[in-house]
């Protein structure tokens, strides 16, 4: 039933499977799902021992928000690898050609600067987004928020800029490479330096934990914002170009 699974691009409604096979797949999934549901509902949830452990150790984590404590201290290895996942996709989507602007900063293209409403709205929206992003980053230590949320808001500001078609981003400039890799690089550097002090990789000294987490989060926010914005602009600008010529169109 998986045999083909080759994606098609033409017909949005067609199915690769004949009707009989679809009914078969549907019934197998329904039966499996029902069995799973039954097994789950008949088994009790484990007592929240881990949650108790988190709240006991929260005071030594450097932050007050338990989710941030888990993400950036208790299970920081996962978060480090998660930033690596984002970086992989950013690298994969980079254009080849080097005949590009040497700057990361958006370069202006005055010809399409016609939409007055959009541009004046952006004058308010962009500073506000930066403010909200900064707030989310800071508040992550105490309440819901944090690096990913802040990065997503900042990236959204960049997307709004890109949508005006007045700005272009030079993603293969050296500056862009530093921006997208800063999050992972600083995370690892923090882990190694604190490891030299405490003897264990990623173990933060309790007194400096809050500062170190903030440093890691700022770097992660910048990189996440840059990567998400890059993913968007590469997809939006790619249109119909092969990987060998796509560098010229971005």
């Amino acid at each position: 039933m998986f045999r083909e699974m080759s994606p098609s691009f033409t017909d949005t409604h067609a199915s690769t499977l004949p009707r009989v096979a679809r009914v078969l797949v549907a019934s197998v999934i329904t039966a499996g799902g029902a069995a799973l549901l039954l097994a789950t509902l008949r088994t009790d949830k484990a007592p929240p021992e881990l949650a108790v452990l988190v709240s006991e150790q929260l005071a030594t984590s450097g932050v007050e928000n338990p989710v941030t404590a888990v993400l950036l201290n208790f299970r920081s290895y996962d978060t480090l690898l998660e930033i690596a996942v984002l970086l992989i996709v950013a690298i994969a989507m980079q254009p080849h050609a080097s005949s590009q602007p040497r700057i990361v900063a958006p370069s202006t293209n005055n010809e399409s600067a016609t939409n007055l409403v959009l541009t004046s709205l952006l004058r308010w929206l962009i500073p506000l987004s930066v403010l909200v992003g900064g707030y989310l980053l800071w508040t992550g230590a105490y309440a819901p928020g944090g690096a990913f949320q802040a990065g997503a808001v900042l990236a959204a500001a960049g997307v709004a800029l890109a949508l005006t078609e007045r700005y272009q981003f030079g993603w293969q400039s050296a500056g862009a490479q530093w921006l997208i890799s800063a999050g992972l690089a600083i995370f690892i550097a923090t882990g190694i330096v604190s490891g030299m002090v405490t003897g264990t990789f990623l173990q933060y000294p309790v007194t400096y934990a809050a500062t170190l987490i903030l440093v890691v989060e700022i770097a992660a926010t910048v990189s996440i914002a840059a990567i998400l914005l890059q993913l968007f602009t590469r997809l939006a600008r790619a249109d119909v170009t092969s990987p060998h010529t796509s560098g010229a169109s971005s």
Binding site: L50, N73, F74
Partner: peptide, 13 residues
Amino acid sequence: RYALGGWGAPLGI
């Protein structure tokens, strides 16, 4: 075993 972050399972990895 090596306890990343010094926490040790199950709290850490």
